[in-house]
Computed example of a mutant assay.
Amino acid sequence: MSNLPFDRHRRLRSSKSMRDIVRETHLHTEDLIYPIFVLEEKGKKVEVPSMPGIHQISIDRLGEEMDEVVELGIRGVLLFGIPDHKDAVGSEAYNDDGIIQQATRFIKENYPDVLVVADTCLCEYTDHGHCGVIEHQFVDNDKSLPLLVQTAVSQAKAGADIIAPSNMMDGFVTEIRQGLDEAGFENIPIMSYAIKYASAFYGPFRDAAGSTPQFGDRKTYQMDPANRLEAQREAESDIVEGADFLIVKPAMTYLDIMREVRDRFNVPVVAYNVSGEFSMVKAAALNGWIDEEQIVLEKLLSMKRAGADLIITYFAKDAAKWIQR
């Protein structure tokens, strides 16, 4: 045996029980938020081709999905609506009888303990697929804000527990906070998509939500993937304006950003494990190239380790099953 001094780190890895008691990061079912895509059509449950296992679901079949969510112990769902009607200003987003509003009422009436997070954006409801009002082929920031406020208030009236604005308009948090407060919803928190990059990882989501832009792209309002300091400015603005949670999106390829946000701001940080990140793993697993369970749990743990308090993920149901085994 060598006489040279060295640390015996392996002592704390010697057995599963030993590894378990010294584990620093833990993933719990209550950390997970499950996204659901709700259709206005009746009797529908349509698998998204680019997202194996993820479906567009009509309200009359939403109970099937929610029963499983509750049985697995998942505490929150994030709702996206797919309306029958779209127009230039996304009017179905702020229709009090719109698809998200109907779905929210259904869930709160039948599953009152499940937290409903309402995605607050216009892209699923506009015929051009952008997140705001278009003027001269450009998204007009200030003309979009009142419509986003109307959407948030309508969602809160329907019973949403958390408003999650994802539009990336400047000033959206302060405008929505003021609108909610004036409508008597001062206790409804805002889960801001504070840091949302113009990422190539969103492709499958746009299939699921029917929100692909009909022209141009979203680079004038979503962030450049090359920028780190800009993320801090965006997060700071949203905190000052009244955000209660900060989302970092995407998650897997922006763990450095998540850690900086966690270190700097004392509010819950939410990782969004986006559709492209989901679909790549699913494709590899279906081809037998990887162990899906081990890969997914490692990915989700990396997000917790980087500072996420909550994780929005399409793997929520699978992960809940694996965690509870």
Rank of each mutant, 00 (worst) to 15 (best):
P5I: 13
L12W: 05
S14V: 10
S14I: 04
D20R: 13
D20W: 06
T29V: 15
F37T: 05
V38P: 04
K42T: 09
K45W: 12
V46E: 15
S50F: 05
M51D: 06
S58L: 09
I59Q: 11
R61K: 15
L62F: 14
G63I: 13
E68W: 09
G76Q: 04
G81D: 06
G90D: 13
I100C: 04
I107F: 10
E109I: 10
Y111M: 01
D113F: 09
D113H: 10
V114F: 01
A118F: 02
L122V: 12
Y125C: 05
Y125I: 11
C131I: 10
I134W: 08
F138D: 01
D140V: 03
K143Y: 06
L148V: 07
L148K: 03
T151Q: 05
A158S: 07
S166W: 08
N167F: 05
G171T: 10
G171Y: 08
Q178W: 10
A183Y: 01
N187Y: 12
Y197E: 11
R206A: 08
Y221N: 05
A226R: 14
R228Y: 14
A231C: 05
Q232T: 12
Q232E: 14
V240K: 03
M252W: 13
T253L: 07
T253H: 11
Y254L: 08
L255E: 03
L255C: 11
V261H: 03
V261D: 01
V274R: 11
G276A: 13
K282C: 12
K282H: 08
G288E: 03
I290M: 10
D291A: 09
Q294M: 02
Q294I: 02
I295G: 04
L301E: 12
S302I: 06
A308G: 01
D309S: 08
D309G: 03
L310R: 03
Y314P: 06
K317Q: 14
K321C: 06
